[in-house]
Design a protein around this nucleic acid. Structure first.
Lengths: 199, 199
DNA sequence: CGCGAAGCGGACGCCGTGGTCCGCTTAGCT
DNA sequence: AGCTAAGCGGACCACGGCGTCCGCTTCGCG
């Protein structure tokens, strides 16, 4: 695998591109045949490069996660930590929204080192963003990077079934609002002055 | 189907119970064989009662949705609309959490009248709960019943991959916090991925 | 240009799953 | 108890998808 012939390298790239596109459009269970068709190569060529479908998924997902990590890294330089965090969330949401397989795939392929390591790298960046946002007072203290990733990813999934194709923006905004530090605990639930017990 | 022999009725109930349990534990794609095994009947018996797997899913999902509608109906009588709404959300969250297939299944089986109608009934109750909570000032105005259902359902899905098995409670609380009327305008607008990324 | 090796891809086999069918069983009425 | 039809369930078929293999093609170096 170290040195590939020129045509093999070309085909490999076409497979990766096609797989990225196919996973994004059709979800993580798109068939190998469909990917091969899009890449303009034979079924066997895909299977030779990636001995199992999971390994192909992992390659694609790993690359996407690294894009996310790079985006997080850029945001780390921002002076306004709160805005940086929120922008990162919106960036991730857009990516999740365009790539149906990213959230699901990243959960399924944790066993692959490329995915696990990319996740680790992303997590690290996100934790730093989160710590900064916390210090800026715009983020509640009881959430970690994986919580944010899970909530954003699944929120996008939720919006897929909505009739309104822009519903995901409202949903993400709701989650973002929920991620702000709650006002003092006593105001979370209104006092009941009459002492009526309804629980 | 109008009149069933006693043993057939018994088997039908066992199938429904087993299917509910199997869908809940294994998700909406559990095999018919597994359901038949749990019910203690033959594969063919399941397929005769329910000509397609979707129809079985629809039967189970419809029943669950009606449970939810009944729960919403009870909450409607509560004097405190805000608390009633939140309690309903927690109730739904617990149900989603125990039944992995409910959220997914209810989206997949919308074509079945039993599911569509049950959804309609549930929606109606939820809308009333929501209107009351809005009037009480504890709920933002730009969410509808299907938004709440989608967000809660997906939030539970998100928590499935978390290491902390109680993460879903934190997530639901975050969504609930986000569903409160925002005190002020948000500071960050959605950030578009312009042409920087290909694809 | 020629040759060896790397690569390609269609054909093939295997497996899991959903749905059908028919011979046997059993409920339930008389 | 006997009879009939409803019901049962395992055997069977079809299908789609994954992974393998081998004969043919193409690269690329000498």
């Amino acid at each position: 695998m170290a040195v590939l012939r020129a045509d093999a390298r070309r085909n490999l790239n076409r497979i990766l591109d096609a797989a990225g596109e196919a996973f994004a459009e059709c979800g993580p269970d798109v068939s190998i045949d469909e990917i091969a068709r899009r890449a303009g190569v034979g079924h066997g060529t895909v299977c030779r490069r990636f001995p199992t479908k999971d390994s192909l998924r992992a390659a694609v997902v790993g690359a996407r996660l690294d894009e996310l990590a790079a985006a997080a890294d850029e945001r780390l330089a921002r002076p306004d930590a709160g805005a940086a965090f929120e922008e990162m969330v919106w960036y991730a949401a857009e990516l999740f929204n365009r790539d149906l397989a990213l959230f699901d795939g990243s959960n399924r392929c944790e066993g692959f080192s490329e995915v696990a390591e990319a996740k680790q790298r992303l997590n690290e960046k996100m934790e730093r963003l989160i710590r900064k946002a916390r210090r800026a007072g715009t983020l509640r203290r009881d959430v970690a990077a994986e919580d944010v990733a899970a909530m954003i990813g699944s929120t996008i999934q939720a919006a897929l079934h909505a009739e309104d194709p822009t519903a995901w923006r409202r949903y993400v905004q709701i989650v973002l609002d929920g991620l702000r530090p709650p006002p003092r605990k006593t105001t979370v639930k209104p006092h009941r002055l009459d002492g009526a017990k309804t629980g």
